[in-house]
Computed example of a mutant assay.
Amino acid sequence: SPLMRKAFDPFVQVLKPISPLAWMPLALYTLKDSDVSGIFVIFICSVWPMLINTAFGVSAVKREWLNVASTLEVNPVRKAFQVILPAAAPTILTGMRISMGIAWLVIVAAEMLVGGTGVGYFVWNEWNNLSLTNVIFAVLLIGVVGMSLDLMFAQLQKAVTYVE
């Protein structure tokens, strides 16, 4: 809906570029729990590409397909699941792929800030212990896991892409 896009776009454009480093103190202050705050920060930083790509994918569904569904008097739920979702799936998965990359970056940053556990905490702790070898190993591990997640989403994206 163009009206919904105009209503929500300013909020998305203001919230999207805010750094995870800026969200963390606010989350810690309001949520009072470091684990929940970390999850909130990961969510708020990675939701935007998925949201924007989903809106774009749904708005790009061919008008003819929607007209055929209307002509056949397909109910709205069936039209959403059998016309719109399959047509928008490649774009939605592109957004999910980008969001996964951002989430992985933010997870590491949040673990560095909050501490306690995780690979981000491990990197920071090993840096403080001046163990550069362990830092390099952890950085490479972060890269390999990020690449693996991206490859999984790429395969899923190929599976749902329809080529005419």
Rank of each mutant, 00 (worst) to 15 (best):
I142K: 00
A154F: 01
V119N: 05
A154K: 13
V144P: 08
A138F: 02
L151V: 05
G118K: 01
F137C: 06
A154L: 15
V123S: 03
Q157Y: 04
Q155V: 14
L130V: 08
L132F: 14
T117L: 01
W124L: 11
N129T: 05
V135E: 00
S148D: 10
Q155S: 13
N128C: 02
V139D: 05
A159Q: 07
L151G: 06
L151C: 08
G143S: 05
V123E: 02
Q157F: 07
V119P: 02
N125Y: 03
G116T: 00
D150V: 06
G118I: 01
M152F: 15
G118P: 02
Y121A: 03
A159W: 13
Y162H: 08
V145D: 04
V145A: 14
L140R: 09
V160D: 10
G116A: 00
A138W: 04
L141H: 06
I142T: 09
V139N: 10
E126M: 12
T133I: 04
L132T: 15
T133V: 07
Y121F: 11
S131Q: 10
W124F: 09
L149C: 09
L156T: 06
L156K: 09
M147P: 01
I142Q: 05
T161K: 15
V123R: 01
N128S: 12
N125L: 10
I136M: 04
F153K: 02
G116E: 00
N134R: 06
G120S: 02
M152L: 15
T161C: 05
W127M: 13
L130Y: 08
T117P: 00
I136L: 09
T133F: 05
Y121R: 04
S131E: 12
A154H: 08
L130R: 02
T117K: 01
W127S: 12
G143N: 02
L141R: 06
A159L: 09
S131F: 01
L149R: 03
L156C: 09
Y162E: 13
V135W: 08
M152E: 06
S148Q: 07
L141C: 15
K158A: 07
M152Y: 02
